[in-house]
Design a protein around this nucleic acid. Structure first.
Lengths: 108, 108
DNA sequence: TTCCTATTTGGTATTATAGCCAATCAGTCT
DNA sequence: AGACTGATTGGCTATAATACCAAATAGGAA
């Protein structure tokens, strides 16, 4: 794998890595159709505000969300809606995993 | 976020986490339409075979790939093709990021 | 059986990530 | 201006991920 290829996959991995955390997936779901401020997300998640803020900065740095400061609040919204399509696929993987596990049980 | 919700997002995150590495993304691309054995992937990637094997086990454990031992070789294939759709979306994010960066340059 | 080859597993050092607290920053309101 | 609120940043510790080497496993061939 040469340097150019390596760089391309690294850029892709950065975006996916930003999504690879339960809290951040939850955030993406929450702001999918309605923007929300950090304090709202903090309440929904139940973690320290600084923790939520850092998760949001990871998502923002990857280009997944965009922010908009209005008054004291900063509102975050999903910048790239196609990410939502991913969730259906992931659910498919989980279903397939569950089936495979069930099959393995039967064959014992 | 209650325990049930937490568990669901954790399960999803596991699958996405399995994809969140340049080498593993490369592997997914490589076996998208043709299964490949570990040694072929090792040559393409240029890392230690044990490293490649561990990447494959992460993907397999998440249910993304399946393996098939024939003779001395173990062949890996993509188990859930819809993951390929993700790549188009990711490229879209990267393009949007590049544009945003270009815009930021102009406004200086 | 013994040798050889492909793969996996164990051990370990290095690096990255997560979460909380405390401190800081940036607006708002009086 | 000074007090207040929402958000971000820095610092720290704990945990997880990565990559290599070396050792073990599994199957094929002599």
């Amino acid at each position: 794998m040469n340097a150019r290829t390596q760089a391309r996959y690294q850029a892709r991995a950065k975006v996916i890595k930003a999504l690879a955390h339960p809290t951040r997936l939850f955030i993406v779901d929450q702001i999918a159709d309605t923007e929300k401020c950090v304090c709202e997300l903090r309440d929904l998640i139940g973690a320290d505000m600084s923790t939520v803020s850092k998760h949001l900065s990871v998502l923002k740095d990857a280009g997944v969300v965009s922010d908009d400061k209005r008054g004291l609040q900063v509102y975050y919204r999903l910048r790239v809606p196609c990410i939502l399509n991913l969730f259906g696929c992931i659910e498919g993987v989980l279903r397939a995993n569950a089936e495979a596990q069930a099959d393995a049980m039967h064959s014992n």
